[in-house]
Design a protein around this nucleic acid. Structure first.
Length: 208
DNA sequence: CCCTGATTCGC
DNA sequence: GCGAATCAGG
C-alpha cells in the first residue's frame, strides 16, 4: 500500500478531525498506526496546527489566549451526577435524563433525530474546533447518550477495562454499571471520565 | 493493562 | 519516503 493522493487526503482530513492514528489506520486499511503517524510527521502536520497556511513566518511566542471568545451561552445543565470527590463517595444517583441525540459527522445509521440540539448559536462553518474545554454540557449530553447504550453490566461482569460507573439506584432492580470500554487505566469510559473529573471550576455551589 | 502520539533507524 | 520497533506519556 502506498500513500496515494486520496489516502493522504483522507489521512489529513481525519487527522484534522482529531481522529487518532489508529483510527485512521483502521479506516485506510493496510497500514498500521505507526505508518500513519510516520506519514503525519513527514507531512509536517504532526502538530494540530497545519491548517491556516501561514507556514513558517514567525514562530516565536505563542499567544497566551487568555480567554476564548466563546459566545456560547451555558444552558444551565442539569448535573445530578456526582463529581468524584476525594477518594470515596461513589455516585449512586441517576436521573432520567432525556438523552438528547448528539449527532456528529459520523456514520449515523438510522437515527430519526427529531430534536436537534442547538448548542452552537452562530450558524458558522464550525470546523473541528478543538475547543479548550467546556465539558459540562457536552459531557453530560454524552453521558446521557452513553447510558442508553451502556451494557448494563452487573458487578461481577466488570473487568479491568469496563466502565464502572454505576447507574440507577442500587436499592432497586434498576441498577447497573455502564460497562462500556474504558480506555486507559481509568475506571470509567470516556464519557464518564468527563463528568467524573470536573475541572474543579464551574458552579461553585449548587443551588439546593 | 489498555491506549495515545513521537522518535529512531534500517530499509 | 516508508514503517516496525521503540520510546514516553496517560
Amino acid at each position: 500500500m502506498s500513500w496515494s493522493d486520496e489516502r493522504v487526503e483522507t489521512l489529513k482530513r481525519m487527522w484534522g478531525e482529531g481522529q487518532s492514528a489508529s483510527q485512521i489506520a483502521k479506516e485506510l486499511g493496510g497500514v498500521t498506526r505507526n505508518a500513519v503517524i510516520g506519514k503525519v510527521h513527514r507531512l509536517g502536520l504532526s502538530n494540530r496546527n497545519g491548517g491556516a497556511g501561514s507556514a513558517g513566518a514567525s514562530a516565536a511566542s505563542e499567544a497566551p489566549a487568555s480567554e476564548t471568545p466563546k459566545p456560547a451561552p451555558k444552558p444551565a445543565a442539569k448535573p445530578s451526577k456526582p463529581a468524584a470527590k476525594s477518594a470515596s463517595a461513589h455516585p449512586a444517583k441517576a436521573d432520567p435524563a432525556p438523552a438528547p441525540e448528539e449527532d456528529k459527522a459520523e456514520e449515523a445509521p438510522a437515527a430519526p433525530v427529531t430534536r436537534i440540539k442547538p448548542i452552537i448559536p452562530a450558524g458558522q462553518p464550525l470546523p473541528p474546533q478543538p475547543s479548550t474545554n467546556e465539558i459540562d454540557p457536552k459531557a453530560l449530553a454524552k453521558v446521557s447518550e452513553v447510558e442508553k447504550k451502556a451494557k448494563k453490566l452487573s458487578l461481577m461482569e466488570l473487568t479491568s477495562r469496563t466502565c464502572k460507573w454505576p447507574v440507577g439506584d442500587p436499592a432497586t432492580d434498576d441498577f447497573w454499571f455502564c460497562g462500556l470500554p474504558s480506555q486507559a487505566g481509568k475506571p470509567y469510559c470516556e464519557a464518564h471520565v468527563g463528568v467524573a473529573f470536573q475541572p474543579m471550576s464551574s458552579r461553585r455551589d449548587r443551588r439546593r
